[in-house]
Design a protein around this nucleic acid. Structure first.
Lengths: 142, 142
DNA sequence: GTACACTGTTTCACGTATGAAACAGAGCGT
DNA sequence: ACGCTCTGTTTCATACGTGAAACAGTGTAC
């Protein structure tokens, strides 16, 4: 194998994880190939850490492993100060309210400008979202 | 453009995100290429959604974007269409990006109106947020 | 013994992502 | 007009990951 220090893909880690799970489940390479749509030959190469799988196969295999991709692809940013403290908003919340919250928290803005921007956005949003066309009426699947 | 519906990599999403950030920072393709170690030609192709970047470049670019890889690589088995995505907000991202993400996820808006609103907001935000500070990203030649 | 059904590995032709370099414009100063 | 520098795009030869198929073992049954 070449110098994978240049590659951001940790093939060895991925390969070991796959082999571990596969053997633990008592499956053959072709079984896993069938299940993941990754050919047995490619699986063999990956398990042995040779070469570098392409993006599709990494997605398929980390999906099969239930493993986060950052585990095998150099996600440089995640240190212990992880950004996993991300805040999650759900789409059904009112967008203008969310925007206002963001603007208020934005250190680049004074409170006055934040308020002004927020109101400007609110007006624009209402105009855009309900012009009478009413072309939506989506089935409200969640 | 080939049949990328079979691919698990959402090149379009990735390309749009890169172009957005790049233009917002006032950088050229070669600037970003220098910074990310992804060549300008490849960068151009990705921004235009042609082809499918390899794993290394996806890692480099999602790293540069501070974007989780799952956003552009379909790890989950989510069936088509249903956008289960809550909008994830990483605190260090720029406010216009967050707003755009919310707008895109807003089911009350068509993609076109979402885009229009987003750009309108972006312009307004830039005008409001940088009256005299002028914290422009300088692009000194090398 | 032979034959069959597995296994993991490797060969092979093919597709395609890549970066360097060439290209085509735009903008600007002289 | 020129020339120069920047921009994004596109050719081009090369490198390499891919799956199908061929290969090499290893049992197991007959």
């Amino acid at each position: 194998m070449a110098d994978q220090s240049k590659s951001l893909v940790n093939t060895v880690e991925l390969g070991r994880a796959i082999r571990r799970k596969r053997e633990q489940l008592g499956l053959s390479l072709r079984d896993v190939a069938d299940e993941t749509k990754v050919s047995a030959s490619t699986l063999s190469r990956i398990e042995n850490g040779t070469g570098k799988p392409d993006a599709d196969n990494i997605a398929r295999l980390t999906g099969w492993l239930d493993m986060p991709m950052e585990r095998v692809m150099g996600a440089r940013k995640t240190e212990e100060g992880t950004d996993t403290s991300a805040v999650v908003y759900f789409p059904h919340e009112a967008t203008p309210d969310i925007v206002e919250a963001h603007l208020r928290a934005d250190r680049n803005l004074t409170p006055e400008t934040a308020k002004a921007l927020s109101e400007l956005f609110r007006v624009a949003y209402q105009q855009f979202s309900a012009p009478g066309t009413d072309a939506r009426a989506r089935k409200g699947r969640k």
